[in-house]
Structure formats: C-alpha cells, structure tokens
Design a protein around this nucleic acid. Structure first.
Lengths: 211, 211
DNA sequence: TTGCTCCTCACGTCACGTGAGGTGGC
DNA sequence: TTGCTCCTCACGTCACGTGAGGTGGC
C-alpha cells in the first residue's frame, strides 16, 4: 500500500457510472474527452475517473448544451477564451424566438390541414372510408394552408376553411387530380423570374421572420 | 436541324437556373438527384434539365421539407409507398409542439438571466463597468433560473428576481466565486444515486414534456 | 472461469458545404 | 480566346451511434 492509496473512500466515478447518473451515453463522454471538452484523469489501467471538478464541469456543459450551444463554443466559454456572454445571450435568445416562430407556423398549418381533413369532425378515425387522403391531396392542402396563413385573419380563415370543406366534399377524386394537374401546369409556365419571386415569398414565410 | 429540335421554346430549366429560382444550392439539387428523390432528364452533354414535372415535384419536396420531414420519408410519400398521411400529421404536430415548448423554456430562462444581469435596467449596455459577467456567474444564474422556472409562479418569480438582484449587488466577485465553489463541492458530494435523481429531474425539464 | 465494464479504432448518419480537376457552349 | 455553367468524385461537418476486437477486475 503506497502512501497515495491511504486516502479516504473514492469520490470518483467511472465513465459508466457517470453515464447512468447523467443519462448521457458512454460514447458521448468519450466524445467530450476526445474534444478536450471534458478530460478526466486515468487510473493505473487507463480507465477514466471523473472527480468532483469533472462532474461539476459536466454539469455546466449540460446546461449550456441545453441552450443549443455547439460543443466548440461551450469549450471556449468554459475555458474563458473569447466570447462575450451578453452577446451570446442575445444570439441564443434570437435563435430561440426564431425556433418558436417557425415551429408555431408548422403547428398552425398542420392543425388547419387536420381541420380540413375532418369534415365530419374526426380526422383521426382509423380510415372509415378506405384509404384516407392521398399524398397529393395532402400536399395540395398543405400548400393552400401555408398561402392562407398570412393573407387572412383567423376569422376569415375559419370562413374559408368551412367553404373549402364544402367544396372538397363535392369534388370527385378525378376532379381533385385534374385540379392538381392544372396547378402544376400553371407553375411550370412561370418564367424563372416569376418562379424566383414566388419562391422568395415562400421562403420569407417558412424558415425565418418573427410574425 | 433534326426533327426533335423543331419544337417550341424550351420550357426546361438548367440546374443553376432552378437553384436561383428556389434558393436551393446546386449541390442540394445534385444531392436530391443522387438520392433518387428528384432525377431530371439529361441533355446531349449530360447536363440536367428540369421540366414541369420536376419543378412541380420539387415544389412538393420543399413543402414537406418545411415540415421537418427527412428526405427519405419525403421520397416514400411522393412515391406513394408506405406511410399513413394521418399518422404522419399526428407525428409532425407532436414534434412541432415539443419544439415550441423546448424553445419557450430556453427563451424564458434567457430572459430571466438577462433580467438578473440588469440591476440598473440595461443589460445590453456595452459593458459600462469593464468586462461584464464572468462565464461562471452566467452559468450559475442560468442554473438557478432553470430551477426557479418550475418551482414558482411568474409572480413569485418576479419577487425573487428582485431580491436576487439586490443580493447580487451586494456580493463581491470573491463572494460570488466562493458561492460557486461551495455549490460545486455540494454537488460532488452527492452519491451516484442522488446525482442520478437530480439529473433525472433536470432532464425532465429540459428536452421534453409539455409544461 | 464467467460476466461486466472498460479500452481504442473506425465507419456510419443526415443534409448538404466545399474545393479539386476537367469539359462544353456563348 | 475568355467567362460562365456544368459535370463527377470525394472529403469535411456535427454530435454522437454502432459494432469490432481485445483487456482487466470481481
């Protein structure tokens, strides 16, 4: 027994223990080690041993990762190099708000599509009349909902949804297909410039921009 | 001039034109071609030519991609193989709502941190007193905000924020550091089981669960 | 001796980005 | 002849997942 072994109980964790404790994978901890983000000491056999300092640092890593920061930036932050924290907060706030807005647009559109698919009130029934809507019809609907979303207020939108439901009820599948074909033709007849404009408008709606 | 050349004006687009029109990169269109997701015809020189059908299909691809669908699933959908559209809508709705909730938690926390950093009302001033908050202090704050978030109502939270601001004003940097050190010690003194429990609670708050 | 945990390569994933090196049409 | 667009490899990115093959402690 060497003097170094004479200390108290081991307050250190093996990689598997830490993984179980944090819900991370062992591989993730290996990864952090490779990056130099979290490099524990090694025991005689070369096995990783995480002490209080490492546990605490991992703690901080997880907090920052929860904010959506890339690991490289987390490393910079924790090592005190570069980066203005206030600037960082601003950026993360912006990104969070963009994510909220984008996801809300998707949510609104999906809800509208579900509503339009349920003329009799139950869109989620296990296919009462056979196969359910075709993919083509679905995409048609989605596109229309996206266009609707910003041209009308929710009230107008509700009105239109009702009308659309009535119309859809009267269309045969053949008519629906023809409608889609006419639409594809109209689109393909656009000049590149017109197409660019249309796509530009579309892009303004989908990825960014706070409503 | 061969008979095949005698047709009307070319209603077909080169890859670069389509890229400019849609805002996609040429590389992305190449990628879709490789995947078999969108494979245009080729001219004599082997160059891609996108006709009305391809433009229309790309249109649909972009709509579905905007929903967050992986390209592989988009391909299945458009080829009519597999996949129940209603099941898909349900899944995408769930995911959108999870994204909203997660991003809102992050937003709330950041706003609270910014508020706590601004005892004199202006957190974004270009560093009136030198360097701004240290990373350690920032992480301390963030952690506290996360814990606060679910233990208190917004009103209680406001009260605490005020008190915390007063306290922070009275703490010297040395005291702040000591506080953080004590916290790290307390954490490292936890048993793996206790750590697991703590991390489990944390995980329930951060990634999933609708508030 | 049998499990269990640990180790280090090393390739795979996803949706492209980014050159590298070369060809054809205006 | 000079640009511009196009082509096909093919490696890089980000945060790991997933075996592959082998070793050490209870």
């Amino acid at each position: 027994m060497t003097p170094a072994d004479a200390a108290g109980p081991d307050r250190t964790l093996a990689v598997g223990e830490l993984a179980r404790a944090t819900g991370l994978s062992v591989r993730a901890l290996h990864h952090y080690d490779q990056l130099g983000l979290l490099s524990p000491a090694r025991d005689g056999g070369g096995r990783r041993r995480y002490g209080p300092a490492e546990v605490s640092r991992l703690h901080q890593i997880l907090v920052l990762r929860g904010f959506g920061l890339p690991l490289a930036e987390i490393a910079q932050l924790l090592d005190g190099t570069v980066v203005d924290p206030r600037e960082l907060l601003r950026r993360q706030l912006e990104q969070a708000e963009e994510r909220i807005a984008a996801a809300q647009r998707v949510r609104t559109t999906i809800l509208a599509v579900i509503g339009a698919l349920a003329p009799s009130g139950n869109a989620l029934a296990p296919s009462g009349n056979g196969a359910g809507p075709s993919t083509g019809q679905l995409i048609e609907l989605i596109e229309r909902m996206i266009i609707m979303d910003q041209k009308f207020t929710p009230e107008q939108f509700e009105q239109l949804a009702r009308r659309r439901r009535e119309m859809a009820d009267q269309l045969t599948p053949e008519e629906f297909t023809r409608l889609q074909e006419r639409r594809a033709e109209a689109l393909s007849a656009l000049s590149p410039g017109q197409l660019a404009e249309l796509q530009h408008r579309r892009r303004q709606l989908l990825p960014e921009q706070t409503p």
